[in-house]
Design a protein around this nucleic acid. Structure first.
Lengths: 364, 364
DNA sequence: TTGAAAGCGGTACCAT
DNA sequence: ATGGTACCGCTTTCAA
C-alpha cells in the first residue's frame, strides 16, 4: 500500500445540512432514516442530498453503531465447485437479509486462515462463517468467540468450540459407499483425500484434522471392520493436494501388484483427476477399477461411464449456515446447534462388482 | 437488521496506553507501526497490547486514512466456474498486495449490480473490479469514476467508460471456431448464449449488451459473411439462462427440419447442458451435431467425446485485472489500458466435418 | 420537531 | 522521542 490516495473529498451530512439550512443532527436523521423529522425538512434535506449526490459513509456509520452489516466468510478454496456453490448459498441468504459478504480463501492453510480471521475481525464483521482447515488448530476461532461475534462452522465441525455447525452426514455417506462396494465383492478399497499428515501416512482417524474427511474415514473403516476386513488403514491415502500429487499416488497404487479394485475420491476435484489418470493409464472404469466420488459435480453425469457420487446438498449447506448466522445476528441466543444435512448415494456406472476369479480374495 | 448487538467492548489504543503508562499518541505509534518510538516504550506498549489482547479496529483506521484496504468485486455468478476461477486469480493477487476482497454476485442482473456497487462504495472500498452485466447500463459505474476510485472492468468492456479493462480476444476466438466449422462443411451453425433481449430474438450485435458475448457474435457473423453465408443471424439463439431454457432452445433446434450441424456454446455451463440434452435426445456428438464450447472447464476433456473448447486464460484474467487495480491504487496515473488476453482453440473430438451427402448444401 | 455536543477508535499535526 | 489534541463522518443522548 502506498500513501497516495486523493484525500476523501466526498460530501458529508454536514454539507447536506448546510445546503438544506438545517442542523447536522436533523440532516443525519433523515439521511439515516431514524428519529422524527417534519415533512418539510425531510424534503429539503432529501433534495439537497440528491443535488449534492450524497453517499453515506458506511464506515463512519459502522463506527458508531458497532455493526458493519457484513458477514465474513473463510473457505478452503473458492475454485473448488463445492465451495463456490456453498458460497453462492451464503451470499444469496446474506443479501436477502441485508448483509454484505467478505470472502477470503484460506487455501486450506491454517496460517492463512488465521490471518484471514484476524483481518475479518479487524474489519469488524458482524459474524463469520468458517470452514476450518484443521480442527486441531482452532485457537484463532476461540478469539472470535471471545469477541462475542457469532460464528458458524461450515462442513467441518469442532467438538470443543461450542458454536453453530452445519455439516453433511459424511459418516453415513462413507458407510453407504463402503457397504455397497463390499457387497459388490470389493476388498481392496482406497480412500483418497487431499488431507495430509506430516509424514503423509495414515495411522488413525484422529490424525485427520479436516472434520468432514475424518468422519468419512471413520465411516469407511467402521464398515470395513464390521465386514471383517482388517488392515484397511493402509488404503487410506493422503496428500492428494495437487493434480501431480494425485497422479503419483494413483499411479503407484494402480500399478502395484495388489492394486485396489475401487477408489473413493474425497471430492469432485480429486474424482476428476482420478478419472483422467485412469484413462491415461489405459485403465478402464469400472472394469479395471471402480470409482466413487464425493460431491455431485455437474460433469459427473456426462462422462463415460458416468460417475457414481455422493450427492451433498452443498447449496443448502451454505444457505443453512448463513441462516443460522443471521438468526444469531438477530438476537437468537440458544445453545449451539449442529445441523446435519442428508446425503444420497447416486449410483451411476463407475462401480461394478468385482470378478469372482480374484484369487487373492479366495477366502471370502 | 436488529438493533441488539452487545455494544462493542473491545480494547482500544487508549486502554493499551493507560496500561503501558504512555500517552495515547505514543501507543498509537507503536500499534500502528508509524512514527518513531524508543525501544523501551515500544516493548512496554507491545506487552500491554498482548496482555489486553488488543485488536486494532480497521474501521476506525480507515475512517482517518481514507483507505479501507479492500477491493470490491462484482461478478455475474460465482457458481459459474469461469467466475470462480477468475475470482481466485483476483483474491490471490489482492492478498499478496495486502488487500481484502469483498465479493458480490450480481446474478447478471443490472439492478442487483447497481445495488452492489452502491454498497461497495458506501463501504469505501479502495477500488473495484466489475464484470458489468450490461454494457448499455453503466451509469452506476460512472458514479464510481466520479468518486475517484479506480475500477477495472473484467471480461466485459465498455467503450464509453474509459477505464482499465481486461478481456479475452473473444472476437478472434469466435472467428477461429467459425472458420474451422465452415471449413469442415458446416453451414447451419448455432451460437447459443445466456444473454437475452426483451423479445428473446436476435437482430443485431448491438442488441447484445454483454461485451464479451457481443464480440463473439460479431466475429461469428463476420466470418459467416466472409464465407458467403447469409442470414446467419437466425442462428444466434438467446436466453439460455437456466437449464430448462437451454433444453427448450436446443430441443426445438435439433428436432426442426433444418437442424444445425454445429452448436457453439457461449460458456461451459451451457456447453455441459447441450451435451446432456443431446445425450438424452439420443443425438450423437459429433456424428449428428458438432459442439464447441467456450471455457476450458476441467470436465471438458473427460467426456466422450471430449469437447472442443476455446481455452480462455481465466485465472490470468482475474490476476491481471487485480494487478492493474493494485497499480492504480499505488498511484499509477496513465491513460486507461485495455488488455486483451489470447485464447486458444483446443480441438478435441466433439467436432466432425459435415457429410457431403447433405443435399441442402449441394451448392457448396 | 430540532439543535448542540459528546463520542466511536483511530491518525496526524504541532508542540515540547 | 513523547504528549496534547483536533479531526474523520456518523449516531445518539440531552435540552430547548
Amino acid at each position: 500500500m502506498d500513501p497516495t490516495l486523493p484525500r476523501n473529498n466526498s460530501v458529508t451530512v454536514a454539507d447536506v445540512a448546510r445546503m438544506a439550512g438545517v442542523s447536522k443532527a436533523t440532516a443525519a436523521r433523515v439521511l439515516g432514516g431514524y428519529g422524527t423529522v417534519s415533512d418539510r425538512v425531510r424534503d429539503a434535506v432529501t433534495l439537497a442530498a440528491r443535488a449534492l449526490n450524497y453517499r453515506p459513509n458506511e464506515l463512519a456509520r459502522s463506527m458508531t453503531t458497532g455493526r458493519s452489516g457484513t458477514i465474513g466468510v473463510v473457505v478452503g478454496d473458492i475454485e473448488n465447485p463445492f465451495f463456490s456453490l456453498a458460497v453462492r448459498g451464503i451470499t444469496d441468504i446474506a443479501r436477502q437479509a441485508g448483509f454484505t459478504v467478505i470472502l477470503t480463501n484460506s487455501g486450506e492453510n491454517p496460517e492463512t486462515e488465521k490471518a484471514a480471521v484476524r483481518t475479518l475481525l479487524a474489519k469488524r464483521v458482524d459474524g463469520l462463517i468458517v470452514s476450518p482447515a484443521k480442527e486441531s488448530d482452532v485457537d484463532h476461532l476461540k478469539d472470535v468467540i471471545r469477541t462475542g461475534r457469532p460464528m458458524v462452522l461450515l462442513d467441518r465441525g469442532s467438538r470443543t468450540l461450542g458454536v453453530d455447525t452445519v455439516v453433511a452426514d459424511d459418516g453415513h455417506a462413507a458407510e453407504n459407499i463402503t457397504r455397497r462396494l463390499i457387497a459388490g465383492g470389493h476388498r481392496r478399497i482406497a480412500y483418497l483425500t487431499a488431507c495430509d499428515t506430516p509424514d503423509h501416512c495414515f495411522r488413525a482417524p484422529s490424525d485427520i484434522s479436516t472434520g468432514s474427511v475424518r468422519r468419512r474415514i471413520e465411516g469407511f473403516l467402521h464398515v470395513c471392520r464390521e465386514a471383517g476386513l482388517s488392515e484397511m488403514d493402509q488404503w487410506v491415502r493422503l496428500g492428494a493436494l495437487t493434480q501431480d500429487d494425485t497422479k503419483n499416488i494413483v499411479t503407484s497404487m494402480l500399478t502395484a501388484p495388489q492394486a485396489p479394485t475401487a477408489i473413493i475420491a474425497s471430492d469432485s476435484v480429486i474424482g476428476l483427476d482420478v478419472f483422467k489418470i485412469c484413462r491415461n493409464l489405459g485403465i478402464e472404469i469400472p472394469r479395471d477399477v471402480s470409482l466413487v466420488s464425493f460431491h455431485d459435480a455437474d460433469w459427473t453425469s456426462v462422462t463415460s461411464p458416468a460417475v457414481t457420487v455422493v450427492r451433498q446438498p452443498v447449496y443448502q449447506l451454505g444457505e443453512t449456515s448463513a441462516k443460522l448466522l443471521v438468526e444469531r445476528l438477530n438476537g437468537e441466543n440458544g445453545p449451539p446447534r449442529r445441523i446435519v444435512l442428508q446425503t444420497e448415494l447416486l449410483e451411476r456406472a463407475s462401480v461394478s462388482d468385482v470378478e469372482t476369479n480374484d484369487l487373492s480374495m479366495a477366502s471370502e
